[in-house]
Simulated scan of single mutants.
Amino acid sequence: MNQIEQMFILQKQLNDETNGEVWLTGVTRENREISWYRGIYMEVAEAIDSFNWKHWKNIDDQPDWDNIRVELVDIWHFVMSESIRISDQEYANKFLMLEPKGSFDVEILVDSLEEMLSLSVASSIQSETNNIRKITDLFFTIISHLDIDIENLYKRYVVKNQLNTFRQQNGYKDGSYIKNWDGVEDNVVAFEIMDSNPSITPSDLYKKLDSKYSLIKQI
């Protein structure tokens, strides 16, 4: 099993744990409509906002590359979810041998993100329109320009996947979850664990999150 297939399995497990398999019909446990496309375009907007496009601010500042990478991983969660929903997850395997360009070309990246935003909005508004394959193509184009290969994407995804699972199992939905861990956001803590243990398994990462969080709750 390759790393793309493993990510799809982890994503389905997360969605199943969050809402049960009813999510495959397009609704939550509470019978609320799920729009993965809305999730995509909201995260895309946040990624675009990291490119210092505001002319009334210092546009010579460097883009927030770290946040852009984080937003791309969030986008990937939603892309996979929609692909699973329509049973088209095998399509992404065409990118298994992705060659990163590492150009960090702002024009290409912003244009690709804006196209992704437009496609996801169109699919969200018109239920009969499904642009997930086009969005998948754009996603892998974007990460290649950010010098992210499949192995790197897998590591980043596992961190966020396990953190999302941890959040769900520790009161994220009812608002009791503590996102700021002793002055540091949980995202940062999770990635620091991965950086310190590059070969860590998803289950061991979860255990480390649980150990650190138990100390926060005692404060």
Results as ranks from 00 to 15, higher is better:
Ile4Leu: 13
Ile4Thr: 04
Glu5Asp: 11
Met7Tyr: 08
Phe8Arg: 04
Ile9Ala: 15
Gln11Leu: 00
Asn15Ile: 01
Glu17Tyr: 07
Trp23Val: 09
Val27Trp: 01
Thr28Asp: 00
Thr28Ile: 10
Arg29His: 11
Arg29Ala: 15
Glu33Gln: 14
Ser35Leu: 02
Arg38Thr: 12
Gly39Leu: 04
Tyr41Met: 02
Tyr41Lys: 05
Val44Thr: 14
Ala47Thr: 06
Ser50Cys: 15
Asn52Tyr: 02
Lys54Val: 12
Lys57His: 02
Lys57Val: 03
Asn58Thr: 00
Trp65Asp: 07
Asp66Cys: 13
Ile68Gly: 04
Val70Lys: 15
Glu71Asp: 00
Trp76Phe: 15
Ser81Lys: 01
Ile84Ala: 00
Gln89Gly: 10
Asn93Gly: 12
Lys94His: 04
Met97Trp: 12
Glu99Ala: 05
Pro100Gly: 02
Pro100His: 05
Gly102Ile: 09
Phe104Pro: 04
Ile108Phe: 15
Ser112Leu: 14
Ser118Met: 13
Leu119Tyr: 13
Leu119Thr: 06
Ala122Trp: 11
Asn130Met: 12
Lys134Gly: 12
Phe139Asn: 07
Thr141Tyr: 12
Ile143Gln: 10
Asp147Ser: 09
Ile148Gln: 13
Leu153Lys: 10
Leu153Thr: 08
Arg156Ser: 14
Arg156Glu: 13
Arg156Val: 02
Val159Gly: 03
Gln162Arg: 14
Leu163Asp: 08
Phe166Tyr: 14
Asp174Met: 03
Tyr177Asn: 00
Gly183Thr: 11
Asp186Cys: 08
Val188Asn: 14
Glu192Gly: 09
Pro198Met: 06
Pro202Gly: 07
Ser203Phe: 02
Leu205Lys: 03
Tyr206Lys: 05
Lys212Asp: 10
